[in-house]
Amino acid sequence: MKDFIDKFKKFLTPAQAASWQTFIYLAAFSWAVSFAATGFAQVFIIHIGWLFLIIAVWWLIYVDEIQKALTFQGFFYGPWIVGALICVFLFGNWSAYPDALPYVVWPIVSFIVAAIRPKFFIKPGPIFKIPDAAGRQDLVILLLCNLVLSCWFQLHFSMQDLLVEYPSLSIDKFDRSAFVVKVSSQEQTATKGDTMLGLAEAELESELEGRPWAEVEKWLYDAKDHMQAVEAAVKRQIAPSKENALWHLRSKVLSGRPDYDLRLFAIWQGPSSKSTGYHLSKSCQIQQVRGRVRVSDDAQSNDPSNLSAPVTQAVGKIQCDTSSPPIFEPDPTLVRS
């Protein structure tokens, strides 16, 4: 143990005034001093401390033992560590950039770090010497490899953006995709179809609940036409999104007299693993009950005589089940219609 501490002490003691240890101490010193400062001065000192730390690590990775430790199968990946550090420094506490930027910049910065062989750390000499033809060929391939890496990072974030624009895709299966794999299937609390059916239920309630039975039956007779108005009303209430045009609400009256069973469908007609898309359904029972006629708000204010007429008559009552999970087969009742 003592041996180890001695070794560690020796490791941390600078061999000369200009060494990586000096920069580590400078970084630590800046960090300590930053506590004493406030406002702009503090930010400035922290940034200076970061720069010292980056220089120290940059130097450190070229120390023989460290360089050996950071080499895998002859490939020295030290520059990518320094590149990551530089990206954290550049983008760490600044959020006004697209998510992809730090990742896209990282390989490019790392390439620059790898290309500038800092001979000046160890031996005196020019900072950057143009390498010979073989070295230049290696650098060109290294640059292109890093650019491809940047493109892959960008692809990842572009596809995330697509999922944000089309959230209804994410409940589908991506087994057949030649591009993506699902790494975690997070359970979504409410899918868009679910939300739409809930809103449609509320719309139906305001249309049918407490209405005279004759009106209810008339509404159900023209349900197909009324559903377009319901769909438009629902789409006004959900968050605007590119994919909304690909969602449709349909209905089907399944049985009649005396009570009706109205089936509501939210149909996703966008890209899907099934060419027919998927749908969610919700079934609503519309019953005939005796009760007071509910009068809509504006009629109430216009015609106060309605209020004083406690006539009970046959009115509609609507009750809906919870909506089904997404179904990837076309519904037989819908196909027939």
């Binding site: 892959w152 692809l155 030649a178 591009f179 993506v180 794999v181 975690s184 997070q186």
Partner: peptide, 13 residues
């Protein structure tokens, strides 16, 4: 981080 384009990367390689 729900999806990763790993298959695209594999095919590209």
């Amino acid at each position: 981080m729900n999806i990763v384009p790993l298959r695209a990367v594999a095919f590209q390689i």
